[in-house]
Computed example of a mutant assay.
Amino acid sequence: MATSRDKRGQAAGLRPDKRLGMNIKRTEQALITAKQLAVRPAGLTVPQYAALFALADNPGISGAGLARSCLVTPQAMTVVLKNLEERGFIERSPHPWHRNVLETRLTDAGREALAAADARAVLIERALSEEFTQEERAMLREFLLRCERAIDRAATDL
């Protein structure tokens, strides 16, 4: 007789090492650890690097927009931006029309820190990319997108 526990893998004995979520988490942790080592000599954390990286392509973006771009909460981004501003890596100024919105831009020091961090972080990305053929990279992106959609569907059923 099947139970609802079977769907979750509990009764079926789905061990942690057999769960895709564990593989994804281990891979994510390995990537974050490698990126931390890569950006540390530039005096940055991974969240700070991500913010500078996003700012380079979106000068003037708001903190809320930057949080969405970096996949963090606005509260977390506020802390990151405060630290970057204190270190002189960014400057913030009121939007010309929306005075409650602060525009954020890289300073020369921020561009230098980003360039130094990215020169090392790109080595991680390159090593990851070189592990797969172009076709495999496309497939991996599709598989990860499918994972994201499956997780979203499962979460709505909770």
Rank of each mutant, 00 (worst) to 15 (best):
E136L: 07
G13S: 04
R68Q: 15
E112R: 14
M77E: 10
K25T: 10
H95Y: 06
A127G: 02
F53I: 05
L140S: 07
L158S: 07
R40M: 01
M139P: 00
P96W: 07
H95K: 04
G65W: 00
L66M: 13
R92L: 02
R26C: 07
P16R: 02
L140G: 04
R99W: 12
A150F: 06
R120A: 09
L66T: 08
Y49E: 01
L37Q: 02
T104V: 15
A38S: 11
L55I: 08
E142I: 05
K82L: 10
A54H: 08
E148L: 09
G13V: 11
L144G: 01
V46E: 00
A30C: 03
L71A: 13
G60Y: 05
T104C: 15
G65K: 03
Y49D: 00
P16A: 08
P47K: 06
L66N: 08
R5C: 14
P74M: 10
N23D: 12
T156N: 09
K82D: 12
E131I: 07
E103L: 06
A54F: 10
L44K: 01
R141K: 05
V72A: 11
R120E: 11
T104I: 15
P47Y: 02
D6S: 04
C147P: 01
R26E: 08
R137T: 03
L140H: 07
T107E: 11
E28H: 08
A76T: 14
Q134C: 05
E135W: 05
H95Q: 04
G43V: 08
T3S: 15
G63K: 00
C70M: 05
